[in-house]
Amino acid sequence: MEQIQSFLPILLLVAVMYLFLIRPQMKKAKQEKQFTAQLKKGDKVITNGGLHGRVLELNDDGTCIIECGAGKIKFERSAISMERTAKLNAPLIEKK
């Protein structure tokens, strides 16, 4: 019984770490993977570096071609920011 009580704080710490660190990180990774899989031609996107553009082409090797003010640039799909793109495409809410 004493052995169980001595391991209880360690087990509790592992459970808390899983609930607050590992699980949310896994959920976010799954959402980002789903976001990149749902990209389509014509979507307005923002890269992690802050480049604004429109998707012209999606390749099978995990890359995409984005048209921006400077021309056409090839990026990895993972370089597209899910959060920034969602904010860009969110409808504007009018304040009353």
Rank of each mutant, 00 (worst) to 15 (best):
A79P: 08
T47W: 07
L51E: 13
G69Q: 14
L92A: 12
A90E: 10
Q34D: 07
T47M: 06
L58W: 01
G53E: 04
P91W: 13
A15M: 09
I65Y: 10
A15Y: 08
L88C: 00
K30W: 06
L11I: 11
I73P: 02
N89Q: 05
K41H: 10
F7W: 10
L88R: 04
C68A: 15
Q5I: 14
A15H: 05
N59E: 07
A79Q: 13
P24T: 01
G71N: 08
K72Q: 15
A37K: 06
A90N: 09
L8P: 00
G50C: 01
Q31N: 03
A79W: 12
K44M: 13
N59H: 09
A70V: 15
L8H: 00
E76C: 12
F75Y: 15
M17K: 11
S78E: 15
E83W: 10
E83K: 09
K30G: 00
E32W: 03
A15E: 04
C68W: 14
F35K: 02
Q31Y: 05
E67G: 12
A86F: 11
L13V: 10
G62S: 03
K74E: 15
R84P: 01
H52F: 15
K44C: 13
A86T: 12
V16K: 04
S6C: 06
R77G: 10
L56A: 05
E2S: 07
T63F: 04
K27S: 06
A37C: 05
P9T: 04
A70C: 13
R23E: 09
E57W: 00
I22L: 06
S78I: 15
T36P: 13
E83F: 10
K41P: 00
I93Q: 08
K72N: 14
I80M: 01
K28R: 11
N89G: 01
A86H: 11
V16P: 02
I22T: 07
E32P: 03
P9W: 05
I93R: 08
A15G: 08
V16F: 05
I66R: 04
E76S: 14
E67S: 14
Q3K: 15
Q25W: 12
T36G: 09
L19T: 08
L56S: 07
K28W: 09
R84N: 07
G50D: 02
E57H: 05
